[in-house]
Simulated scan of single mutants.
Amino acid sequence: MTIKPIRNEQDYSAALEQAADLIVREDARSRDDLDVLQAVIERWETAQCAIPAPTPMHAIRFRMEQLGLTARDLKPYLGSKSRISEILSGQRQLTVDQIRALNRHLRIPAESLIGETKHEPPRKPSTASIAAIEKLKTLGVMKTREGIDAFLARARKAAPAMAMLRKSRTDRTNAKTDLGALEAWCAAVLLIAEQKTLPKSAKRDRSPEAARRLAQLSGKRNSLARVEAELAKLGIILVILDHLPGTFLDGAAMCRGDGTPIIALTLRHDRLDNFWFTLLHEFAHVSCHLVEGTTIIVDDLEVSSSEGIEAEADAFAREALIPIKTWQTASGDLGTEELMAVAAKAGVHPAIVAGRWRYENQDYRRFSKLVGRGEVRCHFVSTVA
């Protein structure tokens, strides 16, 4: 029996008839022919019945529906409202950076995002923008007549590891980040840290107990004025530096040239709840994740992350601020009196309890007067605009 490739429906019908004839035969030659013919038939049927891969637009919309996301939730990964609209309508192709962000943060398969169309090229690392440079000068970090190359060279001399920043992007970096501005911000933090000294009695205590004591400082008088000194006692430098245009930062953990850990905060949201959570999140990175090969971790906490170290840092901060046994008493329809009771039991500022309840219940209208809005930046005026 001659077995031919199937190229059309007529060939397919003929192959089925051949198979029906062979299937009732019991000789070895017929069984061999049937095996080969079945493979040919299956190949044709698979090709004809294959389900086309989803377009990037459909893949994104499907994940949005699964996770209950709105177009606004895509801003950290795709950019402006108009750009999101163009992508979701199929009028604009994804950039390589956007594909990476959607794959990392929303776990959309890369093959679904790539599709069969051409994509915009990835952004090349560039020098800091004029706006970023001007802000550095306004903050007094960069010399008036100093060029950006000389400024970055000073920082690399202080901490050579900073040169690695451009070669990687952390999992919690906004997809819209201007990498040149981010590099300049990190350089500024390192240069500020170079001017700071730690007490000789400083103890390198990075334990959960030390984090818990730091969290409970929030419930005490003049806590913001005492934070830097308390961190210094633990052998950690605190730097407060406003974020630069295009950086979308809440904070960072990094190492000075001599290995001394640094916690840097931008205070971009100027709320007590955000301040204390970011502080303890970066403390977790200092405690657990700043190791050889990882000397800079930058965070936009509005970006969700599936990366292990970010989940660990979030859990570490939550437990330090409000232990799980205490938080379990705050579930449900929390009232103001109950909120105050939970804060007192945890020994932390009420803003921390209010912020966590708002986040976990996705209700940002509740307790809006209790999160300490506008009560942070005024305590750190030298390097925030």
Rank of each mutant, 00 (worst) to 15 (best):
S30K: 02
S331I: 09
K203R: 07
V40T: 01
A232H: 06
A311T: 14
A47L: 01
A317G: 07
Q10N: 02
F62M: 07
S306Y: 14
D273V: 00
A225T: 10
M57N: 13
I324N: 14
A181C: 04
R226P: 05
A132N: 05
R154I: 09
A50L: 05
P122F: 01
P121M: 04
M57T: 15
A253D: 07
T383K: 13
D178S: 00
P54M: 08
V96H: 05
D27N: 02
L279S: 06
D97L: 04
E375N: 06
S112C: 13
R373K: 13
G246T: 05
L67Y: 05
M164N: 15
K203Q: 02
T266H: 09
K176L: 14
A315I: 08
L179H: 12
A19C: 05
W276C: 00
T127D: 15
S218I: 09
I6R: 03
D273S: 12
A59I: 09
E194M: 00
Q328F: 12
R365I: 11
D149G: 03
A155L: 06
T55I: 05
R25K: 06
R377M: 10
T2F: 12
A71F: 05
I309W: 13
L69A: 00
T260R: 03
E292I: 02
Q195P: 02
M142R: 06
M162V: 14
Y77W: 00
P54W: 00
A20L: 11
I130T: 14
A59R: 03
V348H: 11
L265I: 03
V40Y: 12
L272V: 13
I60A: 00
G68R: 09
A252M: 14
P199G: 04
K233L: 11
H349N: 13
D242A: 09
P245R: 05
L334H: 11
K118P: 13
Q10T: 15
G374L: 00
V298T: 12
I3C: 04
S218M: 09
T197V: 08
M254S: 01
F248V: 12
W327N: 08
R212I: 06
E337A: 15
L22S: 03
Y359R: 09
F275P: 12
L191N: 01
D270A: 07
L22E: 00
E292M: 04
E338G: 15
V239T: 01
I262A: 04
W185T: 02
L136Y: 09
C378T: 14
